[in-house]
């Protein structure tokens, strides 16, 4: 699992690595382009809309920022436990339970003033997500249950849970698809500018800085990374590894839960089936592309948000199925890892 982290680097090694990574991204797009040509469509038109949609209009850019938020948060939900060597594949379940908690408070507490209700909704989301990953953390530490399995299975439980909440507890009968009634106006995150960017973007930005600092410069961050690098050595040196890995899972779930609450209070205004979109997969892709590096996560996530917003535009402009972009993203990931292997092989030979 230590292979997930990139090797330590000097300046020349960094430039070298950047060149290899750029090559990997290009190679993935090249394969995607070949697929598009094989479909009998125009790859130039397709990739032009993939790359430019986010930057050609204000709406496109705001949409990209709004997509960026859950992707970053799901990526942290994956990378924070990963630092201690644990795979959290449950970000979507944690996001949905966070959204459920947020929507519950937003509906029942709609009389409260915004100054009170908005933070309460977000905190509810954080707690909801932490409870959900906490189940997996407890099973892992107490009974040794593999965390990949428990977090994935809890996703499926969460799908049914939100379906129940949206069909029986606060159903919106007119929606024609499982969805809750809207939260009160006072629960909504304030927006800035025109077209409006919701405050969740700012919160995510600040949180990214905080997580980056915490992972690099605090004792907890160091111990988390030490546990991931060599659990036995860490425990010999007095780090309580099981408490730490459980803590990593809890924080990861909390961050995903926050993402769910922000989606409710910033984007949808209610909770609806399918709101988790493909954020789990994108979060994992981002986390792996960033090699678990907390500082790199927001930047990589922005790139992926651009691709995702561009993907739907591509489907409209070039009739290329949206799945091509998912395949390109998976290929970027594979080629990045491949480039590390090839680089070290070539390096050791010269």
């Amino acid at each position: 699992m230590s292979e997930v982290a990139a090797p330590p680097s000097t300046t020349t090694a960094r430039v070298n690595r950047a060149a290899w990574y750029a090559g990997s991204v290009l190679a993935a797009f090249l394969v995607g382009g070949i697929v598009i040509v094989l479909l009998g469509l125009n790859p130039v038109v397709a990739f032009e809309s993939v790359i430019t949609t986010s930057f050609s209009t204000g709406f496109g850019f705001v949409e990209t920022l709004h997509k960026w938020v859950p992707i970053v948060l799901c990526a942290y939900a994956f990378t924070i436990p990963l630092a201690s060597g644990k795979f959290n594949i449950g970000a979507e379940g944690q996001l949905l339970v966070g959204a459920t908690a947020g929507v519950a408070l937003g509906i029942t507490g709609s009389d409260l003033p915004p100054l009170l209700l908005v933070p309460a909704v977000l905190i509810a989301g954080v707690l909801g997500g932490a409870v959900w990953s906490g189940i997996a953390a407890f099973l892992m530490v107490r009974f040794g249950v593999n965390e990949i399995l428990s977090t994935v299975l809890l996703n499926f439980v969460a799908f049914e849970l939100i379906d129940y909440v949206a069909s029986y507890v606060w159903p919106d009968r007119g929606a024609g698809h499982p969805a809750t009634i809207p939260v009160g106006e006072n629960a909504m995150l304030p927006g800035f500018g025109e077209p409006a960017v919701h405050a969740g973007v700012l919160i995510t930005l600040l949180l990214s800085v905080a997580i980056g600092l915490a992972m690099r410069s605090t004792a907890a961050g160091f111990e988390l990374r030490a546990t991931g690098a060599n659990p036995r050595a860490a425990s010999v040196h007095g780090i309580r590894t099981s408490r730490l890995t459980a803590g990593g899972m809890l924080v990861g779930g909390a961050v995903a839960g926050l993402g769910g609450a922000i989606e409710v209070a910033g984007v949808h205004g209610n909770m609806l089936e399918g709101m988790q979109s493909n954020f789990l997969i994108l979060g994992i892709i981002v986390g792996l592309m960033a090699r678990g590096n907390a500082v790199a996560v927001p930047f990589v996530a922005f790139g992926i948000a651009v691709l995702e917003v561009g993907a739907s535009a591509m489907q409209r402009s070039a009739q290329v199925p949206i799945e091509v972009v998912l395949i390109v993203e998976a290929l970027i990931l594979l080629f990045l890892m491949l480039s590390d292997v090839l680089r070290s092989k070539l390096g050791s030979r010269s």
Partner: peptide, 21 residues
């Protein structure tokens, strides 16, 4: 000698996309 979980996850995403495509 690439990481088994990471390659497995990448293939999970790619096959999911390929199936729908």
């Amino acid at each position: 000698r690439m990481d088994q979980f990471v390659v497995g996850l990448a293939l999970y995403f790619a096959t999911l996309g390929l199936a729908s495509l």
